[in-house]
Nucleic acid binder design. Structure first.
Length: 432
RNA sequence: GGCUCCAUCGUCUAGUGGCCUAGGACAUCAGAUUCUCAUUCUGAUAACCCCGGUUCAAAUCCGGGUGGAGUCACCA
């Protein structure tokens, strides 16, 4: 049975790329009735953000279910990583290192791959993997669909267990826990590809079975550069708050880096699971195209029933007649947060901008013939007065909504009610 | 810089040697429908990074450039 996992670390919000990885891992497992698990990689207590784990659960829950969770800090406290590291030390594949931690961001890349501590027989410190010389390390990547190899001489001795002797780094924890959770297929970001040779060795020395491993692409900025987390355009939570529907986000994101043979575009999660195929993975990095996301979102909004939309829109715009307003704006919404700007004239009398299209003659006619106008009985009369129908309604539109682009104006007047509608027309009439 | 990965319309992609004068979608532009906007429908513009090689035949295979991405922390 296929078992996959999504393994976020609680150091911030759920990233759009993380959601995509989760969706791929979910589909890979569920396509063959397998299991999809979660693992919280919280082995760096310093970087952990309080409440982030719960937030990840809450957000991910809107997209998919999972079959189990492992929390790495619990595992660390139980000593599983320490035991694994000790085993490696005892078998001679790891050693204690007492060097000061460094920080690559401040110090630049390092050039020494062999740690001097490897020959010093320390009995305390962090545990580091002893990389063998002149060995070819190879794995098959099921996303890239070919083998990738390294000469072990290019692979650095790598910390596996921190000097607290309890918490592991990613490289040890991932091996121990993938083994523990019986993960058959690992799907993770491409930033991990260069540490695969280390994982290969850890698995071998610990006697673990090597899983299928695949690294999908990373999502780039709309401009094609790096997707910066600072810009805030990569947080799933933020997209949700902006009024993007989960089904739209999911559909959008799975198609960044994956495509079916027939190039179908619209997928629910279940449909994606059914259609999922490992051969559909793309190898080159996609750019985030928000226009396409908007298209998906508008599409899924139009799929919603009016009563569903009442629920969805209420947090953005509340109005006693919302159920009547929705049919008027449904085709005009791109994202839920657009709604207030489409509907503000329902709540308050809008300022009337000076506009040459607004004709007092039109307004006077509308006031005097309101009831028949509302019933749509006056089109012929309007034409016979020599007015263009569009011009006539534009005058009303501006008088009532204060805007040149609005929902159909007679329907709008119906919702506003006769008194309010006539008041607004009169107000505009007197101003002109 | 070392190591690794990648390279088809502006963007997401189909394409696994002949079906490709390269197909679809988003975006853009034009037209139709419409009381505006929007929706919907129709049409148009638009791409195989460069140079060699293999082959009767290359977007597709190979080599070299160039370009982009990742990584080189007791972070994940």
């Amino acid at each position: 049975m296929i078992r996959t996992r999504f393994a976020p670390s609680p150091t911030g919000y759920l990233h759009i790329g993380g959601l995509r990885t989760a969706a791929y891992a979910y589909a890979l497992a569920k396509h063959s009735s397998g299991e999809f698990l979660l693992r919280i990689e919280d082995t760096d207590q310093k970087r952990e953000i309080k409440g982030a784990t719960q937030k990840i659960f809450d957000v991910l829950e809107k997209f998919m279910n999972w079959d189990g969770v492992v929390i790495q800090s619990d595992r660390a406290k139980a000593g599983v990583y320490r035991d694994a590291a000790l085993k490696l030390v005892n078998s001679g594949h790891a050693f204690y290192c007492q060097c000061q931690p460094r920080n690559a961001k401040e110090q630049g890349f390092s050039t020494t791959l062999r740690d001097p501590c490897r020959d010093q027989h320390n009995t305390t410190g962090a545990v580091k993997l002893r990389i063998p010389d002149n060995e070819t390390l190879t794995y098959n990547d099921f996303v890239l669909k070919h083998e990738v190899s390294w000469n072990s001489n290019d692979v650095p001795d790598t910390i596996l267990l921190k000097s607290d002797r309890l918490f592991a780094t990613y490289h040890l924890a991932v091996a121990v826990d993938d083994n523990f959770q019986k993960i058959t297929h690992v799907l993770r970001g491409p930033e991990w590809i260069s540490s695969v040779p280390v994982h290969l060795l850890v698995h071998r020395y610990l006697g673990y079975k090597w899983p299928e491993v695949g690294h999908p692409t990373s999502i780039l900025d709309p401009a094609g550069g790096k997707l910066s987390k600072r810009k805030g355009n990569s947080s799933v939570e933020q997209f949700l708050a902006d009024g993007y529907l989960p089904e739209a986000l999911l559909n959008f994101v799975i198609l960044l880096g994956w495509a079916p043979k027939d190039n179908r575009e619209l997928f629910t999660l279940d449909e994606f699971v059914k259609a999922f195929d490992i051969n559909g993975f793309q190898k080159s990095n996609p750019a985030l195209n928000l226009q396409k996301l908007d298209w998906f979102n508008a599409h899924y909004i139009r799929q919603k029933s009016d009563s569903e939309l009442v629920q969805l829109i209420t947090p953005y715009f509340n109005h006693p007649k919302l159920d009547e307003i929705i049919p008027l704006i449904k085709d005009r919404i791109t994202k839920l947060s657009d709604v207030p700007s489409l509907t503000s004239f329902f709540t308050s009398n809008p300022p009337i901008p000076p506009d040459p299209s607004l004709s007092p003659d039109h307004l006077r006619f509308a006031i005097n013939n309101y009831d028949r106008l509302i019933k749509g009985e006056l089109i012929d009369n309007i034409k016979s007065k020599g007015w263009k129908v569009g011009d006539f309604f534009m005058s009303l539109r501006i008088a009532i909504c204060g805007s040149r682009s609005t929902p159909p104006i007679t329907e709008t007047m119906l919702i506003l009610g006769k008194d309010e509608s006539i008041n607004r027309i009169k107000t505009a009439f007197h101003e002109y």
